[in-house]
Every structure is written in structure tokens, then in C-alpha cells.
Simulated scan of single mutants.
Amino acid sequence: METITENMLNVTLLEPRQKHPTIFARFDELEEGESLTIHNDHDPKPLYYQLLGERGNIFIWEYLEEGPQWWKIRITKRITGEQEETLGEIAVKDLRKAEVFKKYGLDFCCGGKKTVKEACAEKGIDVTKVEKELQQADKNPAARPLPYNDWSLDFLADYIVNTHHSYVRKTLPDIKAYALKVAQVHGAQHPELIPIQQLVEEVNKELSEHLVKEEEILFPFIKELIRAKDRSQSPRAVQFGSVQNPIDMMEAEHESAGKCMEEIRALSNNYALPEDACASYSLLFKMLNDFEEDLHIHVHLENNILFPKAIALEKHLNP
């Protein structure tokens, strides 16, 4: 019986031993950019991993229908040279998808240079579920997110200072005070509060120095690059050489602060409150959760938008 119609393969009409070999053969016949849609009576997730293992990351897997009776999946062969987007690049294009990354604990800011497959493999997460939710996010009604990627670099730098740097300076002293207070009162019953308080101190020290370096050294130089471009001039020579050098330092400090916040989340079991939690305990965990949310966006704007554009601008001015 013919099982191929308009590049669709009805897998249910094949004998079990013929299913995967037939799908592989049909996939291999595809030209770059072409797709094969398979129709099945169960989720063919094992096929995804077999195809990835035997053919490599040369395909896009998209669920068109997901049960309960039928599954329909479109498999598209990637075009040679077409790079899979990283977490950071995906978040830059659509910040709604960052919510999917946060749900699964995938770092799109400090770890934004990894692909979805790489990040999921590191954490042992089912990549098909993550990719499916990312595709679903495309269908969700779009809010009106701020157009960060369209802003000039000087405007974006000022926004980061006025919004995120200001938030850090306003919030961290309170978090420090509550972390110390709660550790002193509840530390005997909940020993994890002691390292949490120490990690808060570490984040405070790291970011307090970090903000000053960005505001007094890196961001002014980025603005100077913009002025040089506007005047068709070469930027002045600076002690640190290329803008890449302070950016490397800032990214390393972002990663250090991000790891501290990850440890705090792990120690607190995702900020789960015990039955004997007082109001200060509850407020501390709420503030830590909010602070981490803000830090993700803060670092995303720098690592994935401001810094790459500054590096590209410098290269344009000094070809």
C-alpha cells in the first residue's frame, strides 16, 4: 500500500520493523530546507533522539498535532551553514520564550551562548518538551515587550543603569539585612539559611563593585564608540585595549553572581517556605525570587544585546 502522500508518511501503515528505517530513508532523500511530515498513533519521541544521534543536529522537529489519538510531526532538514540559534539569540528575538527557559531552569543570560539541545543535554531535560513549548509560545498572544533590540546602545546602557542598576542598589541592602536576621533567628532549625546568608553577602560584594566598573569604564567607552561612529572617527586608544576585554570581565562576574543565585535557589528548594516561616522569612524569599528574576533580564540585556553590538561596532570602526 502506498504510504507517502504529498511528503507525508503514515507510519501506522508500516510494519514495526520497517518504521524507523523507512523514516530515515525518507529523511535522507530530503533536499535542504524540505520537510517530511510523519503521522503516527503515539508520540515518536524515541525517533527524535535516534535521528539526532545518527544524523546529528541537522533537522528541525515540530509537533503539528499531539494526541490523544494521533501525532503529526514535521521534520525539516536544515540548510547547510544555518546555525541553530542559542538561548540568548532566541530570547533577544522574543522575550516570551525566556519564560519557557526559566520554567526549566535553562540559563538564557549567562549561559545564553548554548543551544537549546546543548542546555537540555547538560541538565538532563527532555528537549522535545522544551522545543514544543517554544513553538507554542509563537502562537500565544504577543504582549508588547519593550523593543530592547531596536534601541541605540547609549539609550540601552542608560536604561540598564536607571532600571536594573538602580534596582540592585535599592534592593540588595534590604536583602542583606533580612538574610542576616532570618539566619540568626531560624538558622538552628533551618541550617541552609546560613550558607544562603553567606551567598547573599557574596552577591552584594560582587555586584556592588561590578556596577561601578560598568558605569565608570565600560558604558562610557561604549558611548564613545557611538560618538566616533557618528563623527566617522576612530575611537581613542584606551588602557584596556579592546572593548572585548572589559566585556569578558563583566560576563565572568555575571556568571559568578548567577551561580550564587542558583545555589540560593537550590538551598531554599525553589524558595519553598517551611511551616514555621515568619513574615521576615517569607519576605526574604519573595525578595530573593524577585531579585533573581530582575537579574536574569539585566544580564540578558547586557550579554545578549549590548555587549555583542558593542563588539561589532568596535570591529566596524577598526576593521
Score class of each variant (00 low, 15 high):
Thr5Pro: 01
Asn7Gln: 15
Asn10Ser: 14
Asn10Pro: 02
Leu13Phe: 11
Glu15Arg: 15
His20Phe: 15
Thr22Val: 08
Phe27Thr: 05
Leu30Asn: 05
Glu31Asn: 14
Glu31Leu: 09
Glu31Gly: 14
Leu36Ala: 06
His39Lys: 08
His42Val: 04
Asp43Val: 04
Pro44Cys: 03
Lys45Trp: 08
Leu51Ile: 15
Gly53Phe: 10
Glu54Ala: 13
Arg55Pro: 05
Asn57Tyr: 13
Asn57Ala: 14
Asn57Trp: 10
Phe59Asn: 14
Leu64Trp: 04
Pro68Ser: 10
Arg74Gln: 15
Ile75Asn: 13
Thr76Asn: 10
Arg78Val: 13
Gly81Asp: 08
Glu84Met: 14
Glu89Gln: 14
Val92Gly: 05
Asp94Lys: 06
Leu95Tyr: 12
Phe101Ala: 04
Cys109Pro: 01
Lys113Gln: 09
Lys117Gln: 14
Glu118Gln: 15
Ala121His: 11
Glu122Arg: 10
Glu122Ser: 10
Ile125Thr: 05
Asp138Lys: 03
Asn140Phe: 13
Ser152Ala: 11
Leu156Phe: 02
Asn162Ser: 10
Thr163Ser: 06
Tyr167Met: 04
Leu172Gly: 05
Asp174Lys: 06
Lys176Gln: 13
Lys181Cys: 00
Lys181Asp: 02
Val182Met: 00
Ala183His: 00
Ala183Phe: 00
Val185Asn: 03
Val185Asp: 03
His190Ala: 04
Pro191Trp: 13
Ile194Met: 12
Pro195Leu: 03
Ile196Ala: 00
Val200Ile: 07
Val203Trp: 03
Asn204Pro: 01
Ser208Leu: 06
His210Pro: 00
Ile226Asn: 10
Arg227Ile: 10
Pro235Met: 07
Ala237Gln: 15
Ala237Trp: 11
Val238Gly: 11
Val238Thr: 13
Phe240Ile: 13
Val243Ala: 13
Ile247Pro: 07
His254Pro: 03
Glu255Ser: 10
Glu262Tyr: 06
Ala266Phe: 09
Asn269Asp: 10
Tyr271Ile: 01
Glu275Phe: 04
Cys278Thr: 00
Ser280Lys: 02
Leu284Gly: 00
Asp290Thr: 10
Glu292Ala: 14
Leu295Ile: 10
Ile297Asp: 08
His300Lys: 06
Glu302Ile: 05
Asn303His: 01
Asn304Ile: 04
Ile305Asp: 01
Phe307Asp: 01
Pro308Asn: 05
Ala310Lys: 02
Ile311Arg: 07
Leu317Gln: 07
